[in-house]
C-alpha cells in the first residue's frame, strides 16, 4: 500500500523527540522561575525611579489629589502649589512614555483601595491606531500577576498575552539592568522626584513649530473606550474629576483628539481645561523645555492656574 503514515512507523523517534523537548521545557521552566522570581523580588525593592513610582501609584497612594497622565502630566504639575492652594495632599502618577491604557490601569488599582478627592487627567489625547501605546504597556507587566483588575487592559495587547505572561521572566523583559541599578543607593539621587513630579530644566527656548496637516487619523476604539472608562469610573467613585490638555509650544492645524476629548467630557459633565491653543503660553517660549513640555518655571505658573481654577470650582460647588 502506498499510504504510509510515518509518524506511526517511527514511534521511537517521536517519543525521543517529545521527551527531549519536554526536558528542555522543564529546565527552562526552572530557570525561568528562578530568574523571574529573583527579578520580581528586586523590582519591588526599588526605592526610586520609574519602577518605584509606578508601584507607589498602584499600591501605596493615599493622597487627596492625584495627577494621571504621561510625561506632560509628570513634568507639568508641581506638588507644593496644589498642596498650598488646595490644602490637600498630592501625588503625581504621570510616567514618561505611557498612554491612556497605563493611566486607566493605574486608576483601577487606585480605586480598588480608596477614593481620592480630586483626580486630574492630563491628556494630549492620542487616539490614533498604532502599536505604540500597546508596546508601552510593558511597564504594567510586573503587576499583571498580582493585580487582577488591570488584566483586561494588558490583554488588549494580543490574544497571546495571557500565554506569554505564564513566563516569570517575560514581565521583566529588558529590565534586568534597570532593576540592578534601581537597587543601588546612587539610584535615589539619580532618579529623585518630588511626590512623583520631576522638573525639567531648560537652558533656552525651543523653536515654535507650525504644522499644517489637517488630515484626520484613524481612531482606535480601544483607546477611546479606555478614555471613556477612565473618566466615567473616576466620576462614579465620587472624586472631582478634571481633564486637562496642558499647553503646547507648537501650532497644529487640527486638534482631532480635542474633538473627541471635549465631546466625551461634555457628555459626562466633566470640566475640560483646554490649553492647547492658549495664546499666553504660545507667546512665551521661555516657559518650555521643548514643543510639548513645560520647563519647571512654566510648570509652576501652569500649576497655579489649574489649582486656582479647581479652587474656584470647589468654592462655588454646592457641597
Amino acid at each position: 500500500m502506498e499510504v504510509s503514515l510515518f509518524i506511526f512507523n517511527s514511534d521511537g523517534m517521536i517519543k525521543k523527540l517529545i521527551y527531549n523537548i519536554l526536558l528542555v521545557a522543564g529546565v527552562l521552566f526552572i530557570l525561568d522561575f528562578a530568574i523571574g522570581r529573583t527579578l520580581r523580588h528586586f523590582y519591588f525593592r526599588e526605592i526610586a525611579g520609574f519602577h518605584y513610582r509606578t508601584t507607589y501609584s498602584m499600591e501605596k497612594t493615599m493622597e487627596d489629589v492625584l495627577i494621571f497622565g504621561a510625561s506632560r502630566a509628570n513634568h507639568h504639575y508641581v506638588p507644593e502649589i496644589f498642596g498650598d492652594s488646595l490644602k490637600m495632599t498630592f501625588y503625581n502618577t504621570g510616567r514618561d512614555g505611557n498612554g491612556i491604557f497605563y493611566q486607566a490601569a493605574l486608576l483601577k488599582s487606585v480605586l480598588k483601595r480608596y477614593t481620592p478627592k480630586i483626580i486630574i487627567l492630563d491628556y494630549k489625547g492620542e487616539f490614533w491606531k498604532g502599536p505604540l501605546e500597546y508596546d508601552q504597556m510593558s511597564s504594567l507587566m510586573p503587576y499583571y500577576r498580582t493585580h487582577k483588575e488591570i488584566r483586561p487592559i494588558i490583554e488588549l495587547r494580543s490574544p497571546y498575552e495571557k500565554l506569554k505572561l505564564g513566563s516569570e521572566t517575560y514581565p521583566f523583559n529588558s529590565q534586568i539592568l534597570t532593576i540592578a541599578m534601581g537597587n543601588l543607593d546612587i539610584n535615589k539621587t539619580r532618579n529623585a522626584d518630588n511626590k512623583g513630579y520631576v522638573p525639567l530644566e531648560a537652558t533656552h527656548a525651543p523653536e515654535l513649530k507650525v504644522y499644517t496637516s489637517t488630515a484626520s487619523y484613524e481612531v482606535d476604539s480601544n483607546k477611546v473606550n479606555a478614555f471613556k472608562d477612565f473618566v466615567t469610573s473616576a466620576k462614579a467613585s465620587g472624586a472631582k474629576v478634571y481633564v486637562v490638555y496642558s499647553p503646547l509650544y507648537q501650532k497644529l492645524a487640527r486638534y482631532q483628539e480635542n474633538e473627541i476629548c471635549s465631546e466625551i467630557c461634555a457628555r459626562e459633565k466633566i470640566p475640560f481645561f483646554d490649553f492647547s491653543r492658549d495664546t499666553f503660553f504660545l507667546q512665551r517660549g521661555n516657559l518650555f523645555y521643548d514643543g510639548v513640555h513645560l520647563n519647571h518655571k512654566g510648570a509652576i505658573l501652569f500649576s497655579n492656574i489649574i489649582a486656582g481654577k479647581i479652587k474656584a470650582g470647589l468654592n462655588n460647588s454646592p457641597d
Binding site: N20, L23, V24, V27, L28, L31, D32, I35, P131, L132, Y134, D135, S138, S167, T169, Y170, F172, N173, S174, I176
Partner: peptide, 20 residues
C-alpha cells in the same frame, strides 16, 4: 546541550525585543 538551549531561550525572554 539541554542547558544551552534553555539558556538561549531564557536570554531571548530576558533581553529580546518583543515590541515593535
Amino acid at each position: 546541550r539541554i542547558l544551552s538551549y534553555s539558556a538561549v531561550i531564557l536570554l531571548i525572554f530576558l533581553i529580546g525585543v518583543f515590541d515593535g
